[in-house]
Amino acid sequence: MEILSEQELHNLAMNIVGKDLENRGFEFLAVNSQLKKDPQFVCLKNKKLHFVVVKAVKYPDNPKKYDATFMETVKEHALKFKARTYYAGVGIADAEDYEKPVLKGRNYIVNYDGIQEIV
């Protein structure tokens, strides 16, 4: 079986976060699913602009932990547009053995607690 690539894991995380944002009433203005092109989502909610950075995180890394220096850079960029900045870490692991890579066609487990605002 084939291991999911970094881009495929990222796309999976994007889908999970995208559905969450949609359910929360966010309107998408721009979506960028390319790796290392941040933010992934530029959204509108209550007439306010929101930048959302999405990261797929492999086990055993903590999906809630983010690179503060990097997120500060994104936040500075967002402030130029009077936008709020969010981080969305999505933990993805093989359902049967967390230590194994995620394979195409196999079940996986998701660890996602929603978006975290960077203040």
Rank of each mutant, 00 (worst) to 15 (best):
K45I: 13
R106W: 07
K58R: 12
H77T: 09
N23V: 04
E99D: 07
K100G: 00
A30Y: 09
I16H: 09
A93P: 00
Y66F: 09
P63C: 02
Y87S: 08
K55P: 14
Y59K: 09
A56G: 03
E72F: 10
F28Q: 04
K58G: 05
V110E: 05
L21K: 13
L21D: 12
G89V: 13
K75C: 04
L103Q: 10
D20R: 14
I92A: 01
K19V: 10
A78R: 14
H10M: 12
V17W: 13
Y98E: 09
Y86K: 11
A13K: 15
A83V: 01
K19N: 07
G114T: 03
Q40C: 09
P60T: 04
Q34V: 03
G18N: 07
Q40F: 05
R84T: 00
S33F: 02
Y112E: 02
F51P: 04
C43G: 14
T73Y: 14
I16R: 11
E6A: 07
K36H: 06
L35T: 08
D61K: 10
I16M: 08
E8K: 13
N23R: 08
G18Q: 03
H77W: 08
A95Q: 06
F41K: 01
D38K: 15
F41I: 08
L12W: 05
E27C: 02
L44H: 13
E117R: 12
G114Q: 03
I3F: 03
D67E: 00
I115S: 15
E76Y: 04
H10K: 11
Q7H: 00
K75W: 08
K104H: 07
E99K: 03
